Simulated assay, not measured.
Amino acid sequence: MITPAVLPYGDAGLLLEVADTAEVVVLADACRAADLPGVLDVVPAARTVLLVLEPGTELASVRRVVEELEVRAGEGAAAPAGSIEIPVVYDGPDLAEVARLTGLSEADVVAAHTGRPWRVAFGGFAPGFAYLSGGDPRLAVARRDEARTAVPAGSVGLAGEFSGIYPRPSPGGWQLIGRTDSVLWDSDRDPPALLAPGAEVRFTVAGT
């Protein structure tokens, strides 16, 4: 059973703290499905879920409902908020290093990255960036010892348990295994972000 620590977040929010990102995904799904009274938004992060409340909502009443939720760790996640396919050219500058770190061949790294769906756990450091979780655990690798000063938009990387796609050129220390032409953030699109929390992401080899 997932038993989050429930903390007040100012006078219009509750912060739910859990053990890891896997519990975050399950708990956020449960909170969305429960249609909690007075909750405007459910905002997941690496180890927390923030419930943003309507002004004037009694924190104690929402807290009681949250504490009564029966959410079990490891149970099937709710239906994804959507499924997005991301074609990738797997020629990243760190592909060989990831293969070395994991003990896999480069082809096996690609197969592992594309072999199961990922879930958007939470948003990240730039508009459109999403931390993707739930992939093959063999791909868990540390960030680079030295960050790059410039990472091209569309770069697909790995860091810790996560995979991610850089939405725009920026510095970064993720291990880069490929690149995609998918546009992660478009201010003229509704919604602008391609990847929303809870969505399923399936990576494919571009051109196949």
Results as ranks from 00 to 15, higher is better:
Gly134Lys: 01
Ser182Lys: 12
Thr180Asp: 08
Thr149Tyr: 04
Phe125Tyr: 07
Pro191Thr: 11
Val201Met: 04
Ser155Lys: 00
Gly160Asp: 04
Ala142Trp: 00
Pro191Gln: 08
Phe122Tyr: 13
Ala140Val: 08
Gln175His: 04
Gly178Lys: 01
Ser133Trp: 15
Asp188Met: 14
Ser187Val: 15
Arg189Gly: 08
Gly173His: 02
Ala193Cys: 13
Leu132Cys: 06
Pro171Ala: 13
Ser163Glu: 04
Tyr131Thr: 08
Trp174Arg: 00
Pro152His: 11
Ser170Lys: 02
Gly134Met: 10
Gly154Ala: 09
Ala153Gly: 15
Pro197Asp: 11
Ala150Thr: 12
Leu132Thr: 07
Ala147Trp: 09
Pro137Tyr: 08
Ala147His: 02
Asp190Ile: 15
Val151Leu: 08
Ala199Tyr: 10
Ala147Phe: 09
Gly173Tyr: 03
Pro191Asn: 08
Val156Ser: 06
Ala147Gln: 10
Pro197Lys: 01
Ala159Pro: 05
Thr204Val: 15
Pro191Leu: 12
Leu184Gln: 09
Gly128Met: 06
Thr149Phe: 12
Ala153Arg: 11
Glu200Ala: 15
Val151Thr: 07
Glu200Lys: 04
Leu139Asn: 01
Glu161Cys: 10
Trp185Ile: 08
Ala140Met: 05
Leu139Pro: 06
Gly123Asp: 15
Gly135Leu: 07
Pro197Ile: 08
Leu194Glu: 00
Trp174Leu: 00
Glu200Asn: 06
Asp186Lys: 00
